[in-house]
Protein backbone atom coordinates (compact mmCIF):
# COMPACT_ATOMS: atom_id res chain seq x y z
CA UNK A 1 0.00 0.00 0.00
CA UNK A 2 1.56 3.22 -1.07
CA UNK A 3 -1.26 5.65 -0.36
CA UNK A 4 -0.27 9.15 0.56
CA UNK A 5 -0.44 9.94 4.29
CA UNK A 6 -3.16 12.55 3.70
CA UNK A 7 -5.71 9.89 2.78
CA UNK A 8 -8.09 9.23 5.71
CA UNK A 9 -7.66 5.74 7.16
CA UNK A 10 -11.35 4.85 6.71
CA UNK A 11 -11.16 5.42 2.98
CA UNK A 12 -7.90 3.58 2.58
CA UNK A 13 -9.16 0.54 4.46
CA UNK A 14 -10.56 -0.94 1.24
CA UNK A 15 -14.34 -1.07 0.39
CA UNK A 16 -16.32 2.13 0.00
CA UNK A 17 -18.64 3.17 2.83
CA UNK A 18 -22.00 4.27 1.37
CA UNK A 19 -23.30 7.69 2.37
CA UNK A 20 -26.82 6.49 3.22
CA UNK A 21 -27.73 3.63 5.57
CA UNK A 22 -28.13 0.16 4.01
CA UNK A 23 -31.62 -0.80 2.86
CA UNK A 24 -31.83 -3.44 5.59
CA UNK A 25 -31.88 -0.65 8.18
CA UNK A 26 -34.22 1.81 6.48
CA UNK A 27 -36.77 -0.80 5.37
CA UNK A 28 -38.53 -1.22 8.76
CA UNK A 29 -39.12 2.54 9.00
CA UNK A 30 -40.54 2.66 5.45
CA UNK A 31 -42.79 -0.32 6.19
CA UNK A 32 -43.96 1.35 9.39
CA UNK A 33 -45.05 4.47 7.50
CA UNK A 34 -46.80 2.37 4.84
CA UNK A 35 -48.78 0.47 7.49
CA UNK A 36 -49.74 3.69 9.29
CA UNK A 37 -51.02 5.27 6.08
CA UNK A 38 -52.93 2.09 5.19
CA UNK A 39 -54.64 2.05 8.59
CA UNK A 40 -55.62 5.72 8.27
CA UNK A 41 -57.02 5.17 4.77
CA UNK A 42 -58.96 2.07 5.83
CA UNK A 43 -60.56 3.96 8.74
CA UNK A 44 -61.67 6.90 6.59
CA UNK A 45 -64.99 5.30 5.56
CA UNK A 46 -65.85 3.92 9.00
CA UNK A 47 -65.26 7.20 10.76
CA UNK A 48 -67.22 9.06 8.05
CA UNK A 49 -64.58 11.71 7.68
CA UNK A 50 -66.17 14.63 5.82
CA UNK A 51 -63.90 17.68 6.12
CA UNK A 52 -65.98 19.62 3.61
CA UNK A 53 -68.93 19.52 6.02
CA UNK A 54 -67.00 22.00 8.13
CA UNK A 55 -67.09 24.39 5.19
CA UNK A 56 -70.57 23.76 3.76
CA UNK A 57 -72.19 23.93 7.20
CA UNK A 58 -70.15 26.92 8.30
CA UNK A 59 -73.25 29.13 8.37
CA UNK A 60 -75.13 26.79 10.76
CA UNK A 61 -72.15 26.61 13.04
CA UNK A 62 -71.80 30.35 13.14
CA UNK A 63 -75.44 30.71 14.18
CA UNK A 64 -75.00 28.00 16.79
CA UNK A 65 -71.86 29.65 18.16
CA UNK A 66 -73.63 33.01 18.34
CA UNK A 67 -76.21 31.49 20.74
CA UNK A 68 -73.36 30.84 23.22
CA UNK A 69 -72.48 34.49 23.57
CA UNK A 70 -72.68 36.40 25.76
CA UNK A 71 -72.47 33.72 28.45
CA UNK A 72 -75.21 33.87 31.05
CA UNK A 73 -73.75 33.88 34.56
CA UNK A 74 -77.05 34.59 36.35
CA UNK A 75 -76.90 31.32 38.33
CA UNK A 76 -73.13 31.46 38.99
CA UNK A 77 -73.50 30.66 42.69
CA UNK A 78 -75.28 27.43 41.82
CA UNK A 79 -72.69 26.57 39.18
CA UNK A 80 -69.81 27.15 41.58
CA UNK A 81 -71.52 25.04 44.24
CA UNK A 82 -71.86 22.18 41.80
CA UNK A 83 -68.29 22.68 40.60
CA UNK A 84 -67.17 22.34 44.20
CA UNK A 85 -69.08 19.06 44.48
CA UNK A 86 -67.29 17.88 41.35
CA UNK A 87 -63.94 18.72 42.98
CA UNK A 88 -64.99 16.86 46.10
CA UNK A 89 -65.92 13.83 44.01
CA UNK A 90 -62.44 13.94 42.46
CA UNK A 91 -60.77 14.29 45.88
CA UNK A 92 -62.51 11.27 47.33
CA UNK A 93 -62.29 9.18 44.18
CA UNK A 94 -58.53 9.77 44.07
CA UNK A 95 -57.96 9.29 47.81
CA UNK A 96 -59.77 5.97 47.92
CA UNK A 97 -57.96 4.75 44.83
CA UNK A 98 -54.58 5.52 46.39
CA UNK A 99 -55.49 3.39 49.40
CA UNK A 100 -56.08 0.39 47.15
CA UNK A 101 -53.43 1.18 44.56
CA UNK A 102 -50.59 0.93 47.09
CA UNK A 103 -51.13 -2.76 47.96
CA UNK A 104 -52.28 -3.66 44.44
CA UNK A 105 -49.37 -1.78 42.90
CA UNK A 106 -46.90 -3.67 45.09
CA UNK A 107 -48.60 -6.97 44.24
CA UNK A 108 -48.29 -6.17 40.52
CA UNK A 109 -44.55 -5.52 40.74
CA UNK A 110 -42.19 -8.11 39.31
CA UNK A 111 -39.58 -7.61 42.03
CA UNK A 112 -42.08 -7.95 44.90
CA UNK A 113 -44.76 -10.50 44.15
CA UNK A 114 -44.39 -14.02 42.77
CA UNK A 115 -45.90 -14.71 39.37
CA UNK A 116 -48.97 -16.50 40.71
CA UNK A 117 -49.97 -13.40 42.65
CA UNK A 118 -48.76 -10.84 40.14
CA UNK A 119 -50.61 -12.15 37.09
CA UNK A 120 -54.13 -12.35 38.58
CA UNK A 121 -53.77 -8.94 40.24
CA UNK A 122 -52.49 -7.40 37.02
CA UNK A 123 -55.43 -8.80 35.07
CA UNK A 124 -57.84 -7.42 37.65
CA UNK A 125 -56.20 -3.99 37.34
CA UNK A 126 -56.42 -4.29 33.55
CA UNK A 127 -60.15 -4.81 33.93
CA UNK A 128 -60.45 -1.75 36.19
CA UNK A 129 -58.62 0.32 33.61
CA UNK A 130 -60.28 -1.11 30.53
CA UNK A 131 -63.72 0.09 31.52
CA UNK A 132 -64.22 3.81 31.29
CA UNK A 133 -65.33 5.94 34.26
CA UNK A 134 -68.56 6.74 32.40
CA UNK A 135 -69.50 3.08 32.24
CA UNK A 136 -68.68 2.55 35.92
CA UNK A 137 -70.68 5.68 36.73
CA UNK A 138 -73.76 4.37 34.92
CA UNK A 139 -73.44 1.06 36.78
CA UNK A 140 -73.02 2.74 40.17
CA UNK A 141 -75.94 5.09 39.51
CA UNK A 142 -78.02 1.94 39.28
CA UNK A 143 -76.34 0.36 42.29
CA UNK A 144 -76.13 3.23 44.78
CA UNK A 145 -78.57 5.68 43.23
CA UNK A 146 -78.19 9.04 41.50
CA UNK A 147 -75.73 11.44 43.08
CA UNK A 148 -72.09 12.20 43.77
CA UNK A 149 -71.33 8.92 45.57
CA UNK A 150 -71.85 7.02 42.32
CA UNK A 151 -69.29 9.36 40.78
CA UNK A 152 -66.82 8.78 43.61
CA UNK A 153 -67.12 5.02 43.19
CA UNK A 154 -66.68 5.24 39.42
CA UNK A 155 -63.51 7.31 39.70
CA UNK A 156 -62.28 5.15 42.57
CA UNK A 157 -62.42 1.89 40.61
CA UNK A 158 -61.02 3.25 37.37
CA UNK A 159 -58.22 5.24 39.04
CA UNK A 160 -57.23 2.26 41.18
CA UNK A 161 -56.49 0.37 37.98
CA UNK A 162 -54.40 3.20 36.59
CA UNK A 163 -52.49 4.09 39.74
CA UNK A 164 -51.76 0.44 40.55
CA UNK A 165 -50.05 0.11 37.17
CA UNK A 166 -48.10 3.35 37.53
CA UNK A 167 -47.13 2.52 41.12
CA UNK A 168 -45.93 -0.96 40.18
CA UNK A 169 -43.82 0.42 37.35
CA UNK A 170 -42.14 2.78 39.81
CA UNK A 171 -41.50 -0.14 42.15
CA UNK A 172 -39.98 -2.20 39.35
CA UNK A 173 -37.50 0.58 38.63
CA UNK A 174 -36.05 0.84 42.14
CA UNK A 175 -32.46 0.20 43.10
CA UNK A 176 -32.44 -3.29 44.66
CA UNK A 177 -29.36 -2.66 46.80
CA UNK A 178 -30.94 -0.63 49.63
CA UNK A 179 -33.64 -3.29 49.87
CA UNK A 180 -30.96 -5.93 50.20
CA UNK A 181 -29.34 -3.81 52.91
CA UNK A 182 -32.58 -3.85 54.87
CA UNK A 183 -33.04 -7.58 54.23
CA UNK A 184 -29.56 -8.26 55.59
CA UNK A 185 -30.60 -6.89 59.00
CA UNK A 186 -33.08 -9.73 59.40
CA UNK A 187 -36.10 -7.60 58.53
CA UNK A 188 -39.23 -9.31 57.19
CA UNK A 189 -40.82 -8.73 53.81
CA UNK A 190 -43.15 -5.95 54.99
CA UNK A 191 -40.30 -4.10 56.66
CA UNK A 192 -38.20 -4.47 53.53
CA UNK A 193 -40.99 -2.73 51.64
CA UNK A 194 -41.58 -0.05 54.26
CA UNK A 195 -37.90 0.81 54.67
CA UNK A 196 -36.31 -0.20 51.38
CA UNK A 197 -38.96 0.22 48.69
CA UNK A 198 -41.43 2.93 49.72
CA UNK A 199 -38.85 5.64 50.45
CA UNK A 200 -37.47 5.14 46.96
CA UNK A 201 -40.79 5.33 45.13
CA UNK A 202 -42.60 7.89 47.28
CA UNK A 203 -41.80 11.00 45.21
CA UNK A 204 -42.98 9.30 42.03
CA UNK A 205 -46.07 7.93 43.73
CA UNK A 206 -47.04 11.40 44.96
CA UNK A 207 -46.44 12.85 41.55
CA UNK A 208 -48.60 10.20 39.85
CA UNK A 209 -51.35 10.72 42.41
CA UNK A 210 -51.45 14.47 41.81
CA UNK A 211 -51.51 13.88 38.09
CA UNK A 212 -54.43 11.49 38.43
CA UNK A 213 -56.22 14.01 40.63
CA UNK A 214 -55.93 16.51 37.78
CA UNK A 215 -57.38 14.00 35.36
CA UNK A 216 -60.10 13.06 37.82
CA UNK A 217 -61.30 16.64 38.08
CA UNK A 218 -61.84 16.51 34.32
CA UNK A 219 -63.43 13.07 34.48
CA UNK A 220 -65.69 14.06 37.38
CA UNK A 221 -67.36 16.70 35.21
CA UNK A 222 -68.15 14.02 32.65
CA UNK A 223 -69.40 11.31 35.00
CA UNK A 224 -71.89 13.88 36.26
CA UNK A 225 -73.59 13.71 32.87
CA UNK A 226 -74.91 10.23 33.58
CA UNK A 227 -76.36 11.42 36.88
CA UNK A 228 -73.40 10.91 39.14
CA UNK A 229 -73.57 14.38 40.67
CA UNK A 230 -71.71 17.66 40.37
CA UNK A 231 -71.39 20.18 37.57
CA UNK A 232 -71.81 17.46 34.94
CA UNK A 233 -75.46 17.05 35.89
CA UNK A 234 -76.02 20.78 35.43
CA UNK A 235 -74.19 20.76 32.12
CA UNK A 236 -76.23 17.86 30.82
CA UNK A 237 -79.51 19.50 31.78
CA UNK A 238 -78.80 22.87 30.22
CA UNK A 239 -77.43 21.37 27.01
CA UNK A 240 -80.56 19.26 26.65
CA UNK A 241 -82.68 22.36 27.29
CA UNK A 242 -80.79 24.32 24.60
CA UNK A 243 -79.71 26.97 27.15
CA UNK A 244 -76.54 27.73 25.26
CA UNK A 245 -75.65 30.97 27.03
CA UNK A 246 -75.77 29.10 30.36
CA UNK A 247 -73.86 26.19 28.83
CA UNK A 248 -71.15 28.62 27.84
CA UNK A 249 -70.97 29.98 31.39
CA UNK A 250 -70.66 26.50 32.88
CA UNK A 251 -68.01 25.52 30.35
CA UNK A 252 -66.00 28.61 31.17
CA UNK A 253 -66.20 27.77 34.87
CA UNK A 254 -65.03 24.22 34.17
CA UNK A 255 -62.15 25.46 32.02
CA UNK A 256 -61.07 27.94 34.68
CA UNK A 257 -61.23 25.35 37.46
CA UNK A 258 -59.42 22.64 35.54
CA UNK A 259 -56.74 25.11 34.48
CA UNK A 260 -56.21 26.27 38.06
CA UNK A 261 -56.01 22.70 39.36
CA UNK A 262 -53.61 21.72 36.58
CA UNK A 263 -51.31 24.63 37.31
CA UNK A 264 -51.39 24.06 41.08
CA UNK A 265 -50.83 20.35 40.78
CA UNK A 266 -48.02 20.75 38.27
CA UNK A 267 -46.31 23.15 40.70
CA UNK A 268 -46.76 20.67 43.54
CA UNK A 269 -45.50 17.75 41.48
CA UNK A 270 -42.30 19.61 40.65
CA UNK A 271 -41.53 19.64 44.36
CA UNK A 272 -41.48 15.86 44.44
CA UNK A 273 -39.46 15.00 41.37
Amino acid sequence: MTTSPSVAPAASAGGKVPLSPPLRQSLPALLGWAVLLAVLAASWEGAEIRPWALISDAGNMATFARDFFPPNFTDWRYYLQEMLITLQIAVWGTALSVVLAVPFGLLCAENIAPVWVRQPVRRLMDAFRAINEMVFAMLFVVAVGLGPFAGVMALFIHTTGILAKLFSEAVEAIDPRPVEGIRATGANALEEIAYGVIPQVLPLWISYTLYRFESNVRSATVVGMVGAGGIGVVLWEIIRGFYFAETCAVMLIIIATVTLIDIASARLRKLFI
Binding site: P178, G181, I182, R183, A184, T185, Y195, P199
Partner: peptide
Protein backbone atom coordinates in the same frame (compact mmCIF):
# COMPACT_ATOMS: atom_id res chain seq x y z
CA UNK B 1 -29.43 -12.45 59.61
CA UNK B 2 -30.52 -10.63 62.76
CA UNK B 3 -27.22 -11.60 64.40
CA UNK B 4 -25.05 -10.97 61.37
CA UNK B 5 -24.24 -7.49 60.12
CA UNK B 6 -23.58 -7.24 56.40
CA UNK B 7 -21.61 -4.35 54.96
CA UNK B 8 -21.81 -3.92 51.19
CA UNK B 9 -19.38 -2.44 48.70
CA UNK B 10 -22.02 0.07 47.59
CA UNK B 11 -23.17 0.73 51.20
CA UNK B 12 -26.79 -0.16 50.32
CA UNK B 13 -28.26 2.60 52.45
CA UNK B 14 -31.64 4.10 51.59
CA UNK B 15 -30.52 7.43 50.20
CA UNK B 16 -33.73 9.36 50.82
CA UNK B 17 -33.99 8.38 54.47
Amino acid sequence: RADVGFVFQQFNLVGRL
